[in-house]
Simulated scan of single mutants.
Amino acid sequence: MTEAEFLFSLPRPSVAVAGQSRRFPVRRIWCVGLNYAAHAREMGKDPAKERPFFFSKPADAVVESGSTIPYASMTGDLHYEIELVAALHSGGAEISRETALDHVFGYAAGIDLTRRDLQKRARDEGKPWDLAKGFDQSAPLGAIAPAAQVGHPRGGRIALAVNGAIRQQGDLSDMILDTAGIIAELSRYVRLAAGDLIFTGTPEGVGPLRPGDVAEGEIASIGPVRVQIAG
Score class of each variant (00 low, 15 high):
residue 33 G to Q: 09
residue 23 R to V: 10
residue 67 S to E: 02
residue 12 R to A: 14
residue 22 R to V: 06
residue 45 K to R: 15
residue 20 Q to R: 15
residue 41 R to Q: 08
residue 71 Y to V: 00
residue 36 Y to V: 00
residue 55 F to W: 10
residue 19 G to S: 07
residue 45 K to P: 04
residue 79 H to K: 07
residue 40 A to Y: 05
residue 74 M to C: 05
residue 83 E to S: 03
residue 66 G to L: 13
residue 53 F to R: 14
residue 84 L to T: 02
residue 31 C to Y: 04
residue 68 T to G: 08
residue 17 V to W: 01
residue 43 M to T: 02
residue 84 L to P: 07
residue 35 N to R: 12
residue 60 D to L: 11
residue 46 D to W: 14
residue 32 V to G: 03
residue 45 K to G: 09
residue 27 R to M: 06
residue 14 S to G: 10
residue 52 P to F: 10
residue 80 Y to V: 01
residue 16 A to M: 02
residue 15 V to P: 03
residue 39 H to Q: 14
residue 27 R to I: 07
residue 35 N to A: 03
residue 50 E to R: 14
residue 41 R to M: 05
residue 31 C to M: 03
residue 48 A to L: 07
residue 52 P to C: 12
residue 16 A to D: 08
residue 21 S to R: 14
residue 42 E to A: 05
residue 63 V to T: 07
residue 82 I to N: 07
residue 53 F to Q: 10
residue 26 V to S: 04
residue 48 A to C: 03
residue 42 E to G: 00
residue 19 G to L: 04
residue 24 F to M: 09
residue 71 Y to A: 07
residue 47 P to T: 11
residue 73 S to L: 06
residue 38 A to V: 06
residue 25 P to C: 00
residue 46 D to T: 08
residue 65 S to K: 11
residue 17 V to G: 14
residue 68 T to L: 12
residue 31 C to H: 02
residue 65 S to T: 04
residue 74 M to G: 03
residue 68 T to F: 12
residue 34 L to N: 07
residue 86 A to E: 11
residue 74 M to I: 00
residue 49 K to L: 15
residue 18 A to G: 05
residue 52 P to R: 11
residue 57 K to S: 07
residue 31 C to G: 01
residue 23 R to L: 08
residue 20 Q to H: 13
residue 54 F to D: 06
residue 48 A to N: 09
residue 86 A to L: 14
residue 56 S to L: 06
residue 77 D to C: 00
residue 47 P to A: 03
residue 59 A to F: 12
residue 84 L to H: 09
residue 12 R to W: 10
residue 70 P to E: 13
residue 84 L to I: 04
residue 81 E to K: 00
residue 26 V to P: 09
residue 57 K to R: 12
residue 54 F to C: 01
residue 82 I to L: 10
residue 79 H to I: 03
residue 29 I to R: 09
residue 59 A to Q: 09
residue 27 R to K: 14
residue 63 V to E: 05
residue 68 T to N: 12
residue 19 G to C: 00
residue 18 A to M: 09
residue 12 R to Q: 14
residue 53 F to N: 15
residue 16 A to K: 11
residue 28 R to S: 15
residue 33 G to Y: 02
residue 31 C to S: 06
residue 67 S to T: 02
residue 67 S to G: 03
residue 24 F to G: 11
residue 36 Y to L: 07
residue 21 S to Q: 14
residue 77 D to E: 02
residue 54 F to T: 00
residue 79 H to C: 05
residue 25 P to F: 02
residue 14 S to Q: 15
residue 73 S to D: 15
residue 18 A to C: 04
residue 45 K to S: 15
residue 84 L to C: 04
residue 42 E to V: 00
residue 31 C to P: 04
residue 87 A to K: 10
residue 85 V to Q: 03
residue 49 K to S: 15
residue 38 A to G: 14
residue 56 S to H: 12
residue 26 V to D: 09
residue 71 Y to E: 09
residue 65 S to W: 00
residue 69 I to P: 14
residue 42 E to I: 13
residue 73 S to V: 02
residue 86 A to C: 15
residue 55 F to H: 04
residue 21 S to V: 02
residue 38 A to F: 08
